[in-house]
Every structure is written in C-alpha cells, then in structure tokens.
Nucleic acid binder design. Structure first.
Length: 575
RNA sequence: CGGGGAUUGGCGCAGUUGGCUAGCGCGCGCGGUUUGGGACCGCGAGGUCGAAGGUUCGAGUCCUUUAUCCCCGACCA
C-alpha cells in the first residue's frame, strides 16, 4: 500500500474527547472514526487489524471443531418471545418492522437463532456434539457508549453455540476454553480467566476472559497463590468465625436513641461492627416481593448473589414510605426479628434472605422495627428464622479466598466469555431435541462462546502502546513493514520502490511511505503512531552504502542490513 | 435513566459587561525554498457560530425549547 494513497489521515492534534489511550490512538492514527456515539467507521487500517483478529479467531475456532455459518441480522421477534427475552434482556433490543408488519429484532446475541437453525435439521445422537459459530454485527441499544471501541452499540462479535448431551458438555467447554487461551495468546493479549455471573443469557456457570487494564469495566478478584479468579459479582471468600465459643445470652430489648447508620449503632452500644446485624431492604419489581437481605455488620450485600439466591430480577431499594407504612418498620431499625412478612397496605410478600456469615457470630445486636429501640443478644434460629440462607456477601480486597490466600482486586476489559447454557434454551424452545440411541427425544445441552472483535482490538492497543503510538503484535499488525522513503532523488525512489515491490511479491504486507510532501520527522512520527512492527529507511545515505536501516517499533536500536537481509528479516517475522 | 460538562470551517481552540466585514493554530489547495525526528515564505479556499423560537436598533454572546456529544453511576463482547 502506498501511503500517499491511503484513505484516512493521521492527526497531530488529539481530540479532547478521547479519554483513554486506545480511543485516542486509534482515532489519531486513522484506524477508526466515530459516526455517532457508540458507532464507528472502520477505516482501511482499522479494517486490516480487525480482519487479522478475525483470522486468528477463525483459525482457532476451526481447530476446535467449530463450524462457521452466517445467520441473518434480523431475528424474527417470535423467537425472542419463545424464550421471554423480549422483556428480560438487560440490553435494550432494537426492533424493526418490515412492509408487511412482521417484527424483527436486530440481533444482539443469537441463542434463539442457533437453536432455531439446529431444530430444523432434526439431529440425532450421532451428530452430537457439534458447535456452530458466526461473525456478525451485534446491535445493543446500550444506555451509554464508553471509551471508544470498549463499549459500543454496534460491534462485530464471534458467537459460537455448542449442542450435545450433558455428558459431552464438559469436554466441549474445556475445548473452547483452550481455544480461547490460544487465541488471546496469539493476539498478544494477556488474559485472566475469571468465574462470572450468567446474567440474562441463562445457565449455571460461565467464565470471562479479561485483559487487565485500568480502563476496563470488569472488577474481579484473584488469589495470586492458587490462581483462583472470580468476577466481583460471584467471588466467594472464607468468613472468619468471631465469638462462637461465647454462650448464647438471653435476648434483651433496650432503648437506643441513635442515628440510622451502622456506625451510629456501633457508637451507641460500644460493640464491634461485626456483631451488629445489617439489614438491607429491597423491592423486586419483577416478582413484586420485598427482599430483606440480612448479613453480618462488617460485610456488604452482593446484589448479584442476592438475586441468584432469591430469584429476584429487578431489585431496587425499598423506600422509607414502604418501610414505615407498608412493613410497619423503621429505617435504621429494621430487624429480621419480628418483622411482618406481608405488607399491611399492599399485601406484598416479604422474603428474608440471610447470609451464612450470620452463623459466624453469637449474641448479635440490631433494631426492633421500632424507632429508638434495639435488641441485644440476638441469635439466629432461636430468635429469628431465614426463608433463604445463602452466600450473599460482597468480596473485598484482602478477604481470604477459598484457597486460603488473600484476594487481590483487579480491573480489566472483558474480551470474551464462555457460558454453560445447559437446558435453558432447549427447555424454553419447542422441539429443541435430538433422537437418542433408543429413538427417544432428548433436549440438547448447550453452551455459548463470545468474543468481541472491536473490543479485543481496543484491548490490544491498551496493552501495547507507548508515548509515541501503538505497538502492534506482529500477528495482527495492519502491515508488517513500513518503508520510509526519505528524499525525492531518483536513486532513493528507485531503491525504495524496488524494495516495496520485492517484499510485496513475497507476500509481506508493506506500507510504502512514498509521500514527497512529508519531511523525515513527520514520516518517523507517523510510523511510530501507526505502530507497524518494522521500519525500514531508504535515504540517500543508505542507498550510497548499499544497506538500509531497519528498526523494530519496540526497540530503540536500529541495524543496517542489505536488501537480502531486509527480506530475510521481514519474511521470517511475518505470520 | 440520574448527576456534571460541552457544541464556533476537516481537527484543536479564542471571542470581554450584547456593537462594526467572526478570529487564531493545525490541516487542505497553488507557487517557491527545503529534506534523518512533525521546516519556511507568499497566495488561496473553507464557517447561515448544533437546531428552532423569542428579547433587542443590533445576538456567537441574553431567554425558552430541542438535538447531539463527552465524563461519572446501574449493564455487557
């Protein structure tokens, strides 16, 4: 490619709206350009990198026995109704209607489409297991786009769907896990594999592949000793026992003229925070129930775990009005002891969900559901009962992992994930079945596996850049070599063109900076900004000496090589 | 959707308490001198100041409505 003809210019000035390095560098170097918030043009350079990432992903998916297909972008809304996801997905579905009034969803993920495709073929156990995948633009009407390519409303995703029996699933899941490790390794992206929450996709467990970055949106915890890694939503930890050797004391009601915070309770009674009972009252819009989360005072409630444990879907904090008038309690003095289980005004049910940490302490203290009255020596089972007992505690840095090490908090970009879907979709969708050995119909057991291509591209830039620009890993660089032609003398131009031609004929992706109106400094700055792995300089000086200056983007040292040397170096270092 | 900030040639910005043909830098075009880390001189093109309405003799500047964008929160590849 001749740089003089390249569409998409580099820019010396940077926009003030570009807050994170990948967004700024990709825009400044002419890889991408924003259309509207969360929708981007991929320019020729950006498309090359994008294609290269897809090529790597495709290679490893194929190697893992997945088969590529293409699904329509417009999904019949009927299919989404079949799984009730017209209302339950967290990202807003974008819908379109055709001239006949048929409704479609713009695909944001394609579980239903995959199942619908497979069920058309009436598969048998002999066909299982198998995995299909596609690359397609996904549409998600996100509340807020953010950070350039990091969170957008329209993006290329590789999504794969596996079909098989429950017995076969573990091997398939591991195969995909391995494929993902190979993909990100080849892309030059270090990732942590963390256990995460399935959310709206359904199923029981999943793992996220997260590239550590301060600009990422995923918070997760790792135990560096054991390798335990989990998203903050699902991270578990060991709760220490406090005073279980203490005998249970008789419960006692006392006057407590205090404020409503936990600290007020600690101060008033001069007792430790951990001994206080923390009560957090929610209302679930989805099921119309109050959820009272009860936990040891020094811990916080993890709403994701709480939703999992209680079956709630749309939690919001209960209002003071609801607490006082419907539940006859008092903000700051809520207590599982004697709280009404049914709203007196609305008749709404109240479910008490208690954290297992409540069993790590005795003789706890807390409110009475009456203002300025507290209870001392509250003991679980004896004084109150839980409807649901579960782990609903939020992990914090320094807590002890299940393996015994201290948890470290990290932040990163979620570039891919693998989900166990189980029977979730085959239960919801008709005829999602295969014929087994005995001729009986059985549900498929499924998994799904996604990688965001644009986000991965941005994550690679986040991980590989310096003051001057991008440093592409050779596996995905838009060009392997940039030839900087300095000067316009015939010998220089001829030598540069000759090298460009020879390398190109050998299959090396070469960017030939043939611009006659750019001075050397500008060419160097652009080469650095663009992040091409190798830079070769052809100038009057080098032509006279019969050798060329070759420098790696990630090194400060150049070496002088003749044409044969340049060819050898670049050809052996390309993919 | 809640909170904060912004919108003036392709990009980055200035524009005072309302006042004259709306400026600067970069970039772009033409001519020339240059050529190893973003050169210089000359000439030139390009803006109904996000949009609509209002106040005023007069609006980029004041008021109302509205659109878009950025940042922080709840979601995700």
């Amino acid at each position: 490619m001749r740089m003089s003809k390249l569409f998409g210019k580099t820019s010396k000035t940077e926009g003030s709206d570009y807050k994170i390095p990948s967004h700024r560098l990709l825009t400044q170097a002419g890889y991408i350009r924003e259309s509207t918030a969360g929708r981007y043009y991929l320019l020729p350079l950006g498309l090359k990198v994008h294609d290269n990432i897809m090529r790597v992903v495709r290679k490893h998916m194929d190697a893992a026995d997945a088969q590529e297909v293409v699904m329509p972008t417009l999904h019949p809304l009927e299919l989404w109704r079949e799984t009730n996801r017209t209302t339950s997905v967290s990202f807003e579905l974008m819908k379109v209607t055709d001239r006949r009034g048929a409704e479609f969803a713009l695909g944001g993920t394609a579980e239903e489409m995959a199942v619908d495709l497979v069920r058309k073929f009436n598969v048998s156990y002999k066909d299982l297991p198998f995995t299909i995948y596609q690359f397609s633009n996904k549409f998600r009407d996100e509340m807020r786009a953010r950070g350039g390519l990091l969170r957008v409303r329209e993006f290329m995703m590789k999504d794969a769907y596996s079909f098989g029996t429950e017995e076969q699933f573990e091997a398939v899941y591991k195969q995909m896990w391995k494929a993902y490790e190979d993909i990100f390794a080849e892309l030059g992206l270090k990732v942590d594999v963390v256990a995460a929450d399935n959310g709206y996709i359904g199923g029981e467990y999943c793992h996220e592949f997260v590239a550590e970055s301060e600009n990422g949106e995923s918070r997760y915890f790792i135990d560096p000793q054991s390798g335990y890694a989990a998203h903050e939503d699902v991270a578990i930890f060991k709760v220490d026992d406090k005073n279980l050797d203490e005998p249970a004391q008789p419960m006692q009601e006392v006057a407590a003229e205090r404020g409503k915070t936990m600290e007020d309770g600690v101060k008033h009674h001069n007792l430790p925070l951990w001994q206080q009972i923390k009560d957090v009252l929610y209302f679930d819009e989805a099921t119309g129930r109050y959820i009272l989360a009860v936990i040891r005072g020094d811990l916080n409630v993890n709403e994701t775990k709480l939703m999992q444990a209680s079956g709630a879907w749309e939690l919001r904090p209960a209002t003071d009005d609801e607490i006082r008038n419907d539940l006859q309690s008092e903000p700051g003095f809520i207590s599982p002891v004697g709280i009404t289980k049914k709203g007196v005004q609305t008749g709404r049910e109240l479910v008490i969900v208690g954290d297992k940490s409540l069993r790590s302490a005795r003789n706890m203290y807390g409110g009475t559901n009456k203002k300025h009255q507290d209870l001392l020596n509250i003991n679980i089972d004896r004084d109150y009962a839980l409807d649901i007992e579960a782990d609903i505690a939020l992990a914090e840095p320094g807590f002890i992992s299940p393996d015994g090490g201290a948890l470290v908090e990290k932040r990163g970009i979620e570039v891919g994930n693998i989900f166990q879907l189980g029977y979730h979709y085959s239960n919801l969708m008709k005829d999602a079945e295969f014929t087994d050995e005995e001729g009986k119909r059985q549900k498929y057991y499924m998994g799904c596996y996604g990688i965001g291509i644009g986000r991965t591209l941005a994550a690679i830039v986040e991980a590989h850049h310096d003051q001057k620009g991008i440093l592409w890993p050779t596996s995905i660089a838009p060009f392997s070599v940039v030839i900087c032609q300095l000067g316009t003398d015939d010998e220089v131009v001829n030598a540069a063109y000759d090298m460009y031609k020879k390398l190109t004929d050998l299959g090396v992706a070469v960017l030939y900076d043939d611009r006659t109106d750019a001075r050397p400094g500008e060419k160097f700055a652009d080469a650095d900004l663009l992040g091409i792995p190798y830079r070769v300089i052809v100038s009057a000086k080098t032509v006279a000496s019969g050798s060329f200056e070759v420098k790696r983007r990630d090194s400060d040292e150049a070496e002088m090589l003749d044409l044969e040397g340049v060819i050898k170096m670049t050809v052996t270092n390309i993919r």
